[in-house]
Design a protein around this nucleic acid. Structure first.
Length: 306
DNA sequence: TTGTGTTTTATTGCCTCC
DNA sequence: GGAGGCAATAAAACACAA
């Protein structure tokens, strides 16, 4: 309350009038409450019938005078009053006018004080609620982050596994190639082709035989698995059985027409492995810019695909 | 005892509802 | 326009360490 307001002084459980209009409040005054005598701030600037209302007059002038001449002080509510209000707040944190008056009577406060207490209490409750909400959101966030991190680790682990398996596949292919053809020089470009194709992702195609990455992976691992029973003396048993070289690389079934060769050249065959098809003399096995460094005798092996 | 941070009581101004 | 709620704030009371 700003100093200099209407007349005010101290008495237990009475308070300064509010500047807001609360007619019921100004009419209310309790002198018979069991809570009287607390440390609550008191003032009486209330008017009754045009005269300033002064409670406790019946208790004698001494007590009045004792408080009357003290400077205005803000007093806290007694423990009993607070407990009573807390209990009431737990039942309902809103305050209807009738309830406000009843509560005020019961604990010997101005209805205005009760209203203010409820208002401040609601504010405290709201703050606590916000803190709770924050904590709960924080916990949710931490959970999600933990999950995310573990998924990330799992993903990296799987990635590493894929890389190691890929490496293993090519390693076996190289080994098998050495044993099957005894020509180490042709393996490098071929492997390079496969690795590059694999690393280029979905858009890239494989040049020889298999047209898709998965074809290569599955076919190669089946065919070149040296631990497989189908592998006999470095030569796949299927080759021996069928005598069909096409089993391995599935050569194209075309009749070798120029159009099909062009398509093959443009869509399937990486240029760093094969020469431009129009530059190639198809009457002969590939022997120009890209034949994997194969010697002439070895080129015969590849002639089936041309 | 005193300085400082926190809590509590109360005021003010604005907004919404009837 | 009045009543009541709320956010922001003032100020007193209180707690506590140095």
């Amino acid at each position: 309350m700003p100093s200099g307001t209407v007349f005010s002084t101290l008495l237990p459980n009475q308070t300064a009038p509010s500047t807001s209009s609360q007619p019921l409040d100004s009419l209310f005054l309790s002198a018979s409450s069991p809570f009287l005598g607390s440390r609550s701030m008191v003032s009486f600037a209330d008017f009754q019938g045009g005269k300033r209302f002064r409670p406790y007059d019946e208790n004698g002038d001494e007590e009045i005078d004792e408080y009357f001449h003290q400077p205005e002080k803000k007093r806290r509510l007694s423990l009993e009053q607070v407990h009573f209000l807390e209990k009431s707040f737990d039942e309902d944190n809103k305050l209807e006018p009738e309830r406000k008056i009843r509560l005020a009577k019961e604990i010997g406060l101005q209805p205005r004080q009760v209203a203010i207490w409820f208002q401040n209490r609601r504010a405290r409750w709201k703050t606590k609620q916000l803190e709770k909400d924050y904590d709960s959101l924080q916990a949710s966030y931490n959970d999600l982050k933990t999950n995310y991190d573990s998924l990330l680790r799992e993903k990296d682990k799987l990635k590493a596994e894929v890389a190691s398996l890929t490496e293993k596949v090519f390693g076996r292919e190289k080994q098998e190639g050495n044993m099957e053809q005894g020509v180490g020089s042709m393996q490098e470009p071929q492997q390079k082709c496969l690795i590059d194709s694999a690393s280029e992702g979905e858009g890239s195609k494989v040049s020889i035989g298999a047209s898709k990455e998965e074809d290569i992976s599955s076919a190669k691992s089946d065919i070149f698995d040296s631990e497989s029973p189908h592998y006999v003396d470095g030569v796949h048993s299927a080759l021996l059985e069928t005598g069909d070289s096409s089993y391995v690389f599935e050569p194209d079934q075309s009749d070798g027409s120029q159009d099909e060769e062009d398509n093959l050249s443009k869509t399937l065959l990486p240029h760093y492995i094969f020469p431009k098809l129009e530059d190639v003399d198809y009457s002969d096995p590939p022997n120009s810019s890209c034949h994997f460094g194969i010697s002439e005798e070895d080129q015969a092996i590849w002639s089936w695909s041309y």
